[in-house]
């Protein structure tokens, strides 16, 4: 797979625009978030949504899975959830006279892990390791997860009593962290006026399938990145670590900067964003568009503070 000619990038963008239009009819008024969610998927990353219940996280996951023609499952994390409930379990089958594996909900292309911070760390890490390695080992046997494989996890920031917040190192496994937030007035009006969103998901057309998505992922990974853009990404990383000496450098960034892996993920996300936007190359605008979502949960002090820091970083680093 080498550099793709521009002519092949545009059809992806057209299909992506169609997909986003369909999604926007279900999740109203969240165009940027939808676009980032799709980008995250094309960049082979996982998505973390930190938000209160009832803003449409499940709806988003279901709609995304349906419109892309992928199967999906939802796991409600609770304090008594065990790893086997996520991964699956081998049960003795009397008729067959042996153990038979019952695949857990994780063997779906799109998995919605609801309120992940309610489950004990053991169960959390079972899910997170599966996300990282894209395979699970059960009873000494390694089983591949479907490809594409995409996890949308949600975390409730308000009710932290009796919850196990994800440690920062685990947060790193999510490519993006987003907040859905309340809909604005007109969008909320439309929501209230329209019928049940869940019912409308079933009517969504499937505009892609698993092989198509894998193909897009490959195209995104092959998108051209110029040296000038690498300079810019490096400048951003350096500034996040407090290295940059330019005016307005956020000193707070020195506490916990972006890792080289975060830099790679930033580039992957920017590539996918450019592909969705129909460009055969990655521009600083693409990096800036995904920077908040990719960087905020990796920077110091939780998503909210991280988002502010990411924003100030972007404004402080000039294009080289």
């Amino acid at each position: 797979m080498t550099v793709r000619p521009a002519s092949q990038v545009v059809p992806v963008a057209q299909r992506a625009a169609l997909i986003l239009r369909e999604l926007a009819r279900i999740v109203v008024g969240k165009d940027d978030t939808l676009r980032l969610a799709l980008t995250c998927m094309i960049a082979r990353g996982h998505l973390l949504i930190e938000d209160i219940p009832g803003v449409g996280k499940s709806t988003l996951a279901q709609a995304l899975a349906t419109v892309l023609g992928l199967g999906h499952a939802r796991i409600q994390f609770t304090s008594d959830l065990l790893p086997a409930d996520v991964l699956g379990v081998s049960i003795y089958d009397e008729r067959a006279g042996g153990f038979r594996f019952h695949a857990g909900p994780i063997f779906h292309p799109v998995v919605l892990a609801d309120e992940i911070n309610r489950a004990p760390p053991k169960t959390q890490s079972a899910l997170l390791e599966a996300m990282e390695e894209r395979q699970v080992s059960i009873d000494g046997q390694t089983r591949k997860l479907p490809d594409p494989f995409f996890v949308i996890a949600t975390q409730n920031p308000v009710e932290q009593i009796g919850a196990y917040p994800l440690p920062e190192s685990q947060l790193d496994r999510f490519l993006m962290a987003l907040e859905l937030g309340y809909p604005d007035a007109s969008a909320e009006r439309e929501l209230l006026a329209g019928g049940d969103r869940r019912a409308r998901i079933a009517e969504l057309p499937a505009l892609a399938d698993a092989p198509t998505l894998v193909e897009w992922q490959r195209e995104a990974a092959a998108l051209h990145v110029a040296p000038a853009l690498l300079d810019y990404v490096q400048a951003l990383l350096a500034a996040s670590r407090g290295h940059a000496s330019g005016p307005g450098t956020a000193d707070a960034g020195a506490r916990r900067g972006l890792s080289p892996r975060a830099g790679l993920m930033l580039l992957n996300a920017a590539r996918a964003w450019a592909l969705v936007g129909g460009r055969p190359m990655v521009l600083p605008e693409d990096v800036q568009a995904v920077f908040g979502a990719v960087a905020s949960h990796r920077l110091a002090g939780g998503a909210r503070a991280g988002a502010l820091l990411a924003h100030s970083l972007l404004r402080s680093v000039p294009l080289p």
């Binding site: 521009l283 600083p284 605008e285 800036q288 972007l314 404004r315 402080s316 680093v317 000039p318 294009l319």
Partner: peptide, 9 residues
């Protein structure tokens, strides 16, 4: 142009 502004923006 703002220092961090890309050409398209």
């Amino acid at each position: 142009r703002m220092p961090h502004e890309g050409p398209i923006a």
